[in-house]
Amino acid sequence: MRFFVTLILCLIMTSCGFGHLTEVRNQDSHAPTAEECGSCHVEQFAEWQQTAHARAFVSPEFKLQSDQYQEEECLFCHSPGSVQNPEREARSYNREEGVTCISCHLYEQAMHGPHDSGALFSPHAITKNSKVNSKKDSSQLCGVCHEETYEQWRSLGATKHYPTCHGCHGVSVERPHTRGTDSFSNILVSFEPVHRVYSHYLILPNQPEQGTGPEIQLDAMEADTIHFRLKNSLPHDLPTGTYGTKELFVVLSWRQPDGTVVEKKKINISSVLAPGEEKSFAVIFPQKEYSRDLSIDLYRFHHSTQKATLIGSYPFAMDSF
């Protein structure tokens, strides 16, 4: 019975024509869009939409740093065709999608993924590829564009074990690769197994206890001065990246016992911290009765938008000093 159902579905799917899902025609400015992929890979599409990859081409930061797209050497990494293609060709179409589905997954007319297809029928060609998974090989794929960061990670990995790019920046989830959106597609994916994979939503990790995040330590408190250190325990620069202006700052917030913030101080950190590098700071302490609780927040500042991204928060109980 299952063979009969499979045969019928195969005939139907073949007649529908899904070849466009793995076809790129540069001369016609044609390629599958992220929305087309998202019709079956619903969760992955929703996750990708929240990432910097989806905004790689349209972000104000890139517009500023590329001189309104005039710096052509930047275009491949912000609107790539296939990062697996050694020719490093940028797309001339669908550029607003930035680093999109086909950038990482489509190469030589097949979608490359971490597992073989387990669905009842695959509407497009699928190739299992070790570079599109959570293992060490996957960092090579990230390294095509994040070259400097990848080389730092690879070099430091010779003396100490560090997680892969996905190991730090990915969120582990369990799910099948596709999800049906109607009765017909539900039948197709009903036999697909559940895999443990990494989400397409990428995070900024803050796990100093595992040696995979920036560390802030309070060293001493003397008279009205507090001394603390910021250490980069990441296997790459902080902030990372090869191009553009990079700037960090910290905000110290003192609170009353009820949590009310009574004083804040901001300290700019203008230079990039190399792996293992530390910077020490001294800050005048506020009134003694407000000294019970302190939090130090670490931010990256973006000049194009004049906004900051929170990297991590570090709470301290001052009465322990």
Rank of each mutant, 00 (worst) to 15 (best):
L202K: 11
G157I: 11
Q207K: 14
R154W: 15
N129C: 05
G213S: 09
N133V: 00
Q84S: 13
H177M: 04
G170V: 14
N186M: 10
C168Q: 12
H161V: 10
H105F: 08
Q207E: 14
R175L: 00
F191I: 04
S172A: 01
S155Y: 12
Q152L: 06
A125M: 02
R196V: 02
T127M: 12
V173I: 07
K135V: 11
S199T: 01
I102T: 09
F191D: 04
E147C: 05
H115E: 06
H124K: 09
M221V: 10
Q207D: 15
P193Y: 03
K136M: 12
K160R: 08
N94V: 12
L218S: 01
Q140R: 15
N186F: 05
E89F: 06
A125I: 00
F121V: 14
Q140P: 13
K128Q: 07
Q109T: 15
V99Q: 13
E89T: 12
W153K: 12
S185E: 08
W153Q: 15
L202N: 04
A158W: 14
E87S: 14
H166D: 09
L218H: 04
S172N: 00
T127F: 08
S139F: 11
D219L: 11
P193D: 02
N206T: 03
R179L: 04
T100I: 08
S134P: 00
V99H: 05
T212W: 09
P163Q: 07
R91D: 05
E108A: 10
Y93P: 13
Q152G: 08
R91N: 03
G113T: 05
E215N: 11
C104T: 05
S139M: 15
S199G: 01
K131H: 14
H169S: 15
R91A: 04
G157H: 03
A158R: 09
L120Q: 00
T178M: 11
V132P: 05
I203V: 09
V173A: 01
D182P: 05
E174G: 03
S92Y: 15
L188N: 02
L141F: 10
P176I: 01
A158I: 13
E97T: 07
Y201W: 14
